[in-house]
Structure formats: structure tokens, C-alpha cells
Design a protein around this nucleic acid. Structure first.
Length: 266
DNA sequence: TTGTGTTTTATTGCCTCC
DNA sequence: GGAGGCAATAAAACACAA
């Protein structure tokens, strides 16, 4: 039966002894058996009376009892009925007390385990956070590098287009493609004659970002689908392209599709 | 000595298993 | 439905600073 009557609890209480009580027990050793029995009876009567009223006193297990229980707990943290009975007999406790002690002990053990798990998880978290912070710093530095490279690229683009512009701008929009082609030819000639621009252009084309940008541009011209690529960089290059086109008026108004057609968000 | 926080013992109510 | 486990809680015992 799981539930215990108050007399069970009482018996459990009477059967335990605190260290203080042990002292008093030692002190009574000088009494005669009869007197001691009388004292015991009186004590028991007190407890019985207390039980009917209010609080019976709790008594702590002795150090030896606790040690024995701990030892048993280390072996197996749950109790079979026979083991419980045997332990109770060995330690002079009620089986109920042994069961309660194991129950409370399991609760303490669980709390400890949770604490351990918490410490381990916390350490793990700190470790992950450290890694994350490092990665974030790396990322920031890479983004900065990318920005610098983009700026440099824009500068170089502007330089090259300016020198091209100087040659191209005299050509009017109304002029046909042949004129434009001739301008291209002139550029090549110019490239030959002006090593600075040539270096710049070849330097640009050898830039790792340049391939991608060229691809973006070609796709911009060829048509749709380029938006699949990173929009920020595309925009940057569009800006360059747009400026060049605008300044040079490559297309007539009725011929050329506007950039708004390509980029409704602009 | 006393107030206060912690630990230990015990109870209660609910849940699961057989 | 009884037995046992667990979570929540009460309350006594204990530790300790002021």
C-alpha cells in the first residue's frame, strides 16, 4: 500500500535518531532496563498523542544510516521491495523511510544532473558564440574589402569610359551603327596608342570581378533573367553603363528601351 | 541569540504500469 | 485497482552571519 497512516509515519519517526538524540540515548544507558522501558513508553505515548494533534518531530537519519543508503544508491538508484525491506531491517528504519530517502535522493541526483547539463550546454554555447563572432568579424572584413574593390573598379571604369567618351562623344545619336563601329575601331587604335588606358582595361578585365560584371552586362543587354544574379553589383554596373550611354547618346529615344523597362524599381 | 537561507525528511496528488 | 514513481510542497533541522 502506498499511502501510510500517521502511525506508520510515527513509527518511522520514532525509529530514527538524530545525533542529539544519540547523545541522550548514551546518557540514558545508566538507567535500569525497567526505567528505560518506562521512559520509552512515555516517549511513545507522547508521539501517539502528538500524532493525533499536530506535528510529530522529524528526525534526521544518522550518519551511518545515510552512508549505508548512499552506498546502496550508488549500486542501484531504485529499490526492489525485498531490497527495501532488507535495508530497512539492517538500518533499523521503516521500509517507508527507505523508500522516501531513495525518492528524495533521486530528486537530488536529477537536479545535479540538470546542473551539469546546464554547465555543459553553457560552455557549448560560449564556444559557438565565439566561433560566430569570429566569423562575423571575418565577414565584415571581407565586405569591407569588397567595397574597396568595387570603388576601385568604379574609378577605373570611369577613367576608361572618360577616355572613350572623349573620342566617342563627337558621334551623334542619329548617326548609324557604322559610325559607332568606327568609334570602336578608334578605341582599339587608341588603346594601341595610349598604353595607360590599355593597361587599365586589361587590368580591369583581369580582375576577378570583371568576368562576372561582363557577364551581367551582356545579360543586361541580351535580355531578361539577369536579375537572378546579385542585384547590388548589377546595379553598380548598370549605373556605369547607363551613364556612358546617356552621355554618349548611343541610342535614339524611339529605338532604345529605357532602363525603367528593364528595371521597374529604378 | 536570532533571523535567514539551505538541506533533509515527509506528505500529497497525480500518473503509469501490470 | 493496487503499487510505485515523480513533482510540488510543507515543515523540521541545521548552518551561519550579524
Amino acid at each position: 500500500m502506498k499511502r501510510f497512516s500517521s502511525s506508520d509515519s510515527l513509527a518511522a519517526l520514532v525509529s530514527t535518531s538524530s545525533s542529539k538524540e544519540e547523545k541522550t540515548q548514551n546518557q540514558t544507558q545508566g538507567y535500569t532496563k525497567e526505567f528505560q522501558a518506562m521512559l520509552d513508553n512515555l516517549e511513545e505515548e507522547d508521539y501517539t498523542e502528538d500524532a493525533t494533534h499536530t506535528a510529530e518531530k522529524k528526525r534526521r537519519l544518522t550518519l551511518d544510516q545515510v552512508k549505508a543508503l548512499e552506498k546502496t544508491f550508488e549500486v542501484e538508484n531504485k529499490l526492489e521491495p525485498e531490497r527495501k525491506q532488507r535495508l530497512a531491517e539492517e538500518l533499523g528504519l521503516q521500509p517507508r523511510q527507505v523508500a522516501i530517502w531513495f525518492q528524495n535522493r533521486r530528486a537530488r541526483w536529477k537536479t545535479k544532473q540538470l546542473e551539469k547539463e546546464y554547465v555543459a550546454l553553457k560552455a557549448n554555447y560560449e564556444d559557438l558564440k565565439l566561433n560566430y563572432d569570429n566569423l562575423e568579424r571575418q565577414n565584415e572584413s571581407l565586405v569591407l574589402q569588397l567595397k574597396e574593390l568595387k570603388a576601385k573598379l568604379r574609378e577605373e571604369n570611369a577613367d576608361s569610359s572618360n577616355s572613350v567618351k572623349e573620342e566617342e562623344c563627337p558621334v551623334s545619336v542619329s548617326e548609324n551603327n557604322i559610325s559607332v563601329q568606327s568609334q570602336s575601331h578608334e578605341i582599339s587604335d587608341n588603346e594601341n596608342s595610349n598604353p595607360t588606358i590599355k593597361d587599365q582595361i586589361s587590368g580591369l578585365s583581369s580582375h576577378p570581378l570583371m568576368n562576372w560584371i561582363q557577364l551581367s552586362e551582356s545579360r543586361t543587354i541580351l535580355g531578361n533573367g539577369f536579375q537572378v544574379y546579385q542585384p547590388h553589383v548589377v546595379k553598380l554596373e548598370e549605373q556605369n553603363l547607363f551613364n556612358t550611354e546617356e552621355s554618349c547618346n548611343f541610342f535614339s529615344v524611339d529605338q532604345a528601351p529605357t532602363l525603367h523597362w528593364h528595371f521597374p524599381e529604378l
